[in-house]
Design a protein around this nucleic acid. Structure first.
Length: 336
DNA sequence: AATACCATCAACCGCGCTACT
DNA sequence: GAGTAGCGCGGTTGATGGTAT
């Protein structure tokens, strides 16, 4: 018997999400948490398939997402991780807090590939391109490697070219790859083993200094300035930038119980990891709710519709916000 | 100003994996 | 062990905005 379609496609909406749909999905998940995705659209009153809802949530609506262009340091991390993991975008994303596999994948295809080629590096193999004349051949080979596995080095001692994009990062402090990392990065190893190999590459503090403290200004709730869209905006696009409204303002954000702890370095105190994520759920209250993901990137929440009923739902829902964060799989980042 | 071309990225599609019965 | 359901992942597509002509 063949696989059933993920959803009954008849009558289901496709294409870009509208602000209204976003609100419904957010409201539902904030209220109920992430449960069975197949049931979400029905329960949330959405004419979408569960898969679409999950994608929308994980790639766009998730509150802990960091948006905007990847920093140079993040790019460097992506390149390093790609050299070890190949096109395993979700694995790569798991090492970049607030970034999604889709985002990283897109960034790789649109920016990093070009950058590497420009620098004479084969993005597929992470080795220097032999010469410009052979670039076309490499391109062809790269195109053939759609499902390429992590680089199998032809010569054991040959290391992928490491690219230091960020001059601010002290090269001396850059964690050295374990000697066995590439040899063992046949990636068929167990995930734990893999994490053990990769995680030490990116010291947590360095990571934080690398982009969190630089790019995530710590601001107090009262300092937040919500961008307001022109009232004439009539777009129905799900694009975050085009449908700013006053929805967030109605959320009475100051009533939030933010339990975010920053240390002296403005880094997020969070000791979560994949193994003890559940154990930490109850006692780890460190959440970066006031970093840019909520403030700078959640302006899609603002909506011109002054729908008091929905806002009430949100007000109630937001009290569960912290809990939802703790339950979110996204807090399994190995870096924390 | 109009059109063509290009770049970007959100969303979709199909497959694989895992858990459950 | 086989069948099924559900989720996650990676590749691809298509809409949109920007730039060049």
């Amino acid at each position: 018997m063949g696989r059933q379609p993920c959803c009954d496609k008849v009558g289901l909406k496709k294409g870009p999400w509208t602000a209204e749909e976003d609100k419904k999905l957010i409201s539902f998940i904030l209220t109920n948490g992430q449960c069975c995705w197949r049931a979400v659209p029905k329960l949330a009153g959405l004419l979408r398939c569960g898969k679409s809802c999950r994608l929308r949530w994980t790639n766009y609506l998730r509150p802990d997402l960091k948006r905007g262009l990847l920093s140079e340091y993040e790019e460097k991390m992506v390149i390093d991780l790609h050299a070890q993991l190949g096109n395993r975008w979700s694995k790569i994303a798991s090492h970049l807090p607030g970034r999604t596999d889709n985002e990283i994948k897109n960034h790789w295809n649109t920016h990093i590939k070009k950058k590497l080629k420009k620098m004479g590096i084969d993005p597929a193999t992470h080795k220097p391109l032999p010469n410009a004349n052979e670039q076309n051949q490499n391109q062809t080979r790269q195109d053939q490697q759609l499902h390429h596995q992590p680089v199998e080095l032809e010569e054991p001692n040959q290391q992928p070219l490491q690219v230091d994009f960020d001059p601010k990062v002290d090269p001396n402090k850059e964690p050295e790859k374990p000697e066995t990392s590439l040899e063992s990065s046949t990636i068929t190893e167990e995930a734990k083993e893999e994490d053990q190999i990769i995680t030490p590459l990116f010291d947590t503090m360095e990571l934080m200094n690398g982009f969190c403290t630089d790019e995530v200004p710590i601001i107090e709730p009262h300092e937040i300035l919500m961008p307001c869209a022109p009232s004439s905006s009539s777009t129905t696009s799900s694009s975050s930038s085009s449908n700013s409204t006053n929805f967030l303002e109605d959320l009475q954000l100051p009533d939030f119980e933010w339990s975010c702890n920053y240390n002296d370095n403005n880094t997020i105190t969070n000791n979560n990891n994949n193994e003890d994520k559940d154990d930490d759920n109850n006692n780890n209250s460190s959440m970066a709710l006031w970093d840019d993901d909520i403030i700078g990137n959640r302006y899609w929440l603002i909506n011109e519709d002054d729908d008091s009923d929905e806002n009430q739902v949100f007000d109630a829902s937001l009290t569960q916000f912290s809990k939802m964060f703790m339950e979110s799989e996204s807090w399994g980042y190995g870096l924390f």
